[in-house]
């Protein structure tokens, strides 16, 4: 168990802090409340699916964790460190340990797959060596090629990403995330704009790579079969609250479906 263990002074009780701990988190955009009182933990090596209807705040919750959205209140502990108080270099350092795979992959068009993967190293290195593959050191290039190979895109290394298919682009985004060497992975509907077969392949790849490295992963998905197949635990959001928190093996299909029907409606 790699989870951080804190010995509380004056207490005989050991408090184990999981890699991701969210407490009493709230987000409002002006007068519009997105969610509040959100508590959730993701344990070491655990795959957790986040489900809920459209507008329930799943993506916003993920974006809060990397501070792309500022929460109204609450705390987010990444391996024991509260990220909400961080600024500048401290925030950069905290973000560098969190891999984020976006719904629309968010790759840089006009650049090659290899350069896009190389960008993942900006989490730990600075300067021209992590800007473009042509300027990168042999070691960096080799590592980026290794991850492209892991996602099955070695032949497309020098191809521009705007010429790749949706599934291939999502794989490049996964390779970029792996290049980051993350200690926590957040995934926002990677299967949303992909056909069922490609979506399943992408989810399988993510699941396999995360499990192989023992990295905890929090996934937002709108596909019931993916949620059941690729997660250890399922958390459901409804009316701005955590309405479900269950091990995936014990999840009642009917209650899960109600979250997805809500999403469709």
């Amino acid at each position: 168990m790699n989870a951080l263990v804190l010995n509380c002074p004056g207490s005989a009780v050991e408090t184990t802090i999981p890699p991701l701990r969210v407490r009493n988190l709230a987000v409002s955009f002006g007068a519009k409340r997105i969610f509040d009182g959100i508590d959730l933990d993701v344990a070491e090596g655990e795959a957790v699916s986040l489900i809920g209807g459209n507008g329930s705040g799943k993506s916003t919750l993920l974006r809060c964790i990397v501070r792309l959205v500022e929460p109204t209140e609450g705390s987010i502990l990444i391996r024991g460190q509260d990220v909400l108080g961080l600024r500048g270099e401290g925030l950069r350092r905290a973000r560098s340990g969190i891999g984020f795979v976006f719904q629309k992959h968010n790759l840089v068009p006009r650049l090659s797959a290899l350069s896009n993967v190389l960008h993942g190293a900006q989490a730990r290195a600075k300067g021209p060596g992590v800007w473009f593959q042509s300027l990168a050191s042999s070691q960096m290039r080799d590592e980026a090629m290794t991850w492209l190979e892991a996602v099955g895109l070695l032949p497309q290394a020098l191809q521009r990403v705007d010429s790749l298919s949706g599934g291939q682009s999502q794989r490049v985004a996964i390779a970029r995330m792996l290049m980051q060497r993350p200690k926590l992975v957040l995934v926002d509907e990677p299967d949303a704009s992909l056909d069922p077969k490609t979506g399943r392949e992408v989810m399988e790849l993510l699941h396999r790579l995360a499990k192989a490295k023992g990295v905890p992963i929090l996934i937002v998905s709108h596909r019931l079969e993916h949620v059941k197949s690729y997660s250890d635990r399922i958390i459901g959001l409804a009316s701005g609250r955590v309405a479900l928190n269950v091990e995936s093996g014990l999840a009642d299909p009917a209650s899960l479906r109600s979250f997805f029907e809500d999403a469709v409606s």
Partner: peptide
């Protein structure tokens, strides 16, 4: 956003 989220300067 993707690059900011991974800690890029």
């Amino acid at each position: 956003e993707a690059l900011s989220a991974l800690g890029a300067s």
